[in-house]
Write a protein that binds this DNA or RNA. Structure first.
Length: 271
DNA sequence: AGTGCGGCCTGTCCGC
DNA sequence: TGCGGACAGGCCGCAC
């Protein structure tokens, strides 16, 4: 579900809510997520104080005095701050209780999410170590993407959704960025010029910035951590708009399938 | 090595 | 109203 803007929205909310608070208990109702939760490791949060909340790609990292909690929300995961007396639902798998009385609750119907604990640098965790640069990393340039894609045959959409190339992009924002850039999602990456890569990178950054400002995209599962929906779904240009007129030229938006994912584009604006 | 696909899960929606 | 099938913000591991 959540891509970078949704995770970033949750990160900012949790930062405001939990910084300086001390974990008093961890309740794990179902450890069988995408990767089985190491219960005794994750319980080491207890007695420690939240010092920072960071994000890497789609991973959230809660930095305690010593040690980091790493959370990935998969497709359907949600993190919310609730009160202890709010009864848990059938998909509320993990809770972190805090001295303030607040409870951080992980809900994930499909259980594609994951929870880890590490006392090392969280970015060296095996699940994070191979991640590519953050989209806003200054070292990431059109020239780098151009160089990285030489000799490759895959589509530009599949390439951008590969987290080893850029971290944090999923189906919605890759689709939207390629519309903004005017590039067909099925273009082979090897054929894309350096100038076009610069355009694609600018489009990625502008769509992510706008989505973060809007608090993310709420289509079905996702809401912000306080339960309010994001607003970016109102500004989607092509995503899930098959058959509807392109907002720029009126041509019907087309739907296709790339790398197993629904992909939308305007056959006239995107070349 | 790069690429595509199946699978992991549950919920929802659509057509019959 | 019930039922089967397709689909859903992700990502891993396996074949070719």
């Amino acid at each position: 579900m959540p891509e970078l803007p949704e995770v970033e929205t949750i990160r900012r909310y949790l930062w405001a809510e939990l910084l300086g608070d001390t974990c008093t208990n961890v309740v794990i109702r179902r450890p069988d997520l995408r990767w089985p939760i190491d219960v005794s490791a994750v319980r080491r949060c207890i007695g420690r104080t939240v010092r920072d909340i960071r994000r890497r790609g789609k991973y959230l990292m809660v930095a305690y005095d010593r040690g980091h909690l790493i959370v990935h929300l998969g497709m359907s995961g949600r993190l919310g701050v609730v009160r202890r007396q709010d009864p848990p639902g059938p998909h509320d798998h993990v809770e972190w209780w805090f001295r303030s009385g607040k409870v951080l609750r992980l809900r994930d119907p499909r259980r594609f999410g994951s929870v880890f604990w590490t006392e090392n640098d969280p970015c060296t965790h095996p699940r994070l170590a191979e991640l590519g640069p953050e989209p806003f990393d200054r070292r990431l340039t059109g020239r780098r993407l151009y160089a990285r894609s030489r000799g490759r045959k895959t589509s530009v959409k599949a390439f951008l959704m590969d987290a080893r190339v850029i971290a944090g992009l999923g189906n919605i924002y890759t689709t939207e960025a390629l519309f903004r850039a005017g590039i067909r999602p099925d273009r082979p990456v090897g054929d894309i010029s350096q100038r076009e890569w610069s355009r694609i990178l600018r489009a990625i950054r502008s769509v992510l910035r706008a989505a973060i400002r809007a608090g993310g995209t709420s289509l079905r599962d996702y809401t912000r951590a306080d339960g309010t929906p994001g607003m970016f779904q109102m500004r989607l240009s092509v995503y899930r708009r098959a058959g509807l007129p392109c907002i720029r030229c009126g041509t019907p938006v087309q739907m296709t399938r790339i790398a197993g994912r629904s992909t939308y584009f305007c056959p006239r604006c995107q070349r």
